[in-house]
């Protein structure tokens, strides 16, 4: 792992001047991941905030080659790039060592893109797929996805007179991808930049598909001030809503254990999307969420012990 000073002197592949919102987690994550690359990379992105904000014709914020095809196919698109690379390398038309990285939101990964991602993992393309998980369809205006936590109010799971926001728990995508038994799977947070960059380095070294699920706080969708993104990510890590771990060649390892495990309320009360949970009879939703977080944390501890 390079020092922060060394990393800060590296030429960044995502330039400033893109049009992501102030406080967006996605650009922070992209920059941290790309700092881990020590070869040329090609980036693929699915339709979403990152894509629309970084490649508005006739401009591009990408210093490396970049392809956006559609919403549900970042994984199959990148597998096409990686296939072309192997074809041209075999024929001696390319000799440069290169890496291939996909960035996609939770909508494009957990939901509409899961088939393409699963297929690419099974086929074994050497590529890193990074999900920047902001826990809803933020680009279309905050609709619930299967990554949205229980109780969160979104525009398609609003809090109303009879419903307390989303009524289902979130899908555990990281574990689903780990079940593909690919060389490297990790969960990371931009608040632990050192952990994230190290994981991206290991992912890029893996001789096959690798996957990183990175929590990407969204000031607009989560309803918190834009200067609190990193705080919001770290609170999720500390409350064990977003545990940090990796699965290397099927070996599970916790990469960060919170010193204290504050109640999930600490994270919930900092965000407007959960404000309704602190009113009326909704306290039970917080208890349900806490129970689910505890259960999954215990399971993870068992897997990583």
């Amino acid at each position: 792992m390079a020092s922060l000073k060394q990393l800060s002197s590296k030429k960044e592949l995502l330039t400033g001047g893109h049009r992501l919102c102030a406080g967006c987690g996605a650009s922070i994550i992209v920059r941290q991941v790309l700092l881990a690359a020590d070869t040329p990379v090609v980036v693929a992105a699915s339709t979403g905030c990152l894509e629309v904000a970084t490649s508005i014709f006739p401009y591009t914020a990408w210093r490396c080659s970049f392809i956006h095809c559609a919403f549900e196919n970042a994984a199959s698109t990148l597998s096409g790039v990686e296939t072309a690379y192997r074809a041209l390398k075999k024929k001696g038309k390319i000799d440069q060592d290169m890496r291939f990285i996909a960035f996609s939101g939770d909508g494009g990964t957990y939901d509409i893109g899961i088939q393409a991602l699963s297929g690419a993992c099974e086929r074994g393309h050497r590529m890193l797929y990074v999900c920047y998980d902001n826990q809803a369809y933020m680009n279309t205006g905050i609709q619930r996805s299967s990554a949205t936590p229980l109780g969160a109010a979104t525009t398609t799971s609003p809090a109303g007179k009879v419903l307390p926001g989303k009524t289902q728990n979130r899908k555990d995508l990281t574990e689903i991808i780990a079940a593909h038994h690919i060389p490297y799977v990790a969960q990371a947070s931009p608040s632990r930049w050192n952990d994230l960059v190290s994981k991206a380095q290991r992912a890029l070294q893996a001789e096959g598909p690798s996957f990183m699920n990175v929590l990407s706080p969204c000031p607009r969708g989560w309803r918190y001030p834009p200067n609190e993104t990193i705080k919001m990510a770290q609170l999720a890590v500390d409350t064990c809503i977003w545990p940090l771990y990796e699965v290397v060649e099927d070996k599970w390892r916790l990469t960060y254990r919170p010193k204290q495990k504050p109640p999930v309320e600490e994270w919930l009360k900092a965000q407007g999307r959960f404000a309704h949970l602190f009113k009326g009879d909704n306290q039970q939703v917080i208890e349900q969420l806490q129970a689910e977080v505890d259960r999954r944390w215990e399971e993870l501890l068992e897997k990583t012990s």
Binding site: V42, A44, I67, C69, A70, E72, N73, A75, S76, T77, L78, S79, G80, V81, T83, A84, Y85, R86, A87, L88, K90, K91, Q115, A116, S118, G119, A120, E122, R123
Partner: peptide, 26 residues
């Protein structure tokens, strides 16, 4: 043949991989 043959999991991915491989100069 020298072809890299990608046995995708759907036609949607077939065309997506074709688009990307063609955009990669093959």
């Amino acid at each position: 043949v020298d072809t890299e043959f990608v046995t995708v999991e759907s036609e949607h991915s077939a065309m997506s991989a074709c688009v990307a491989a063609a955009a990669s100069g093959t």
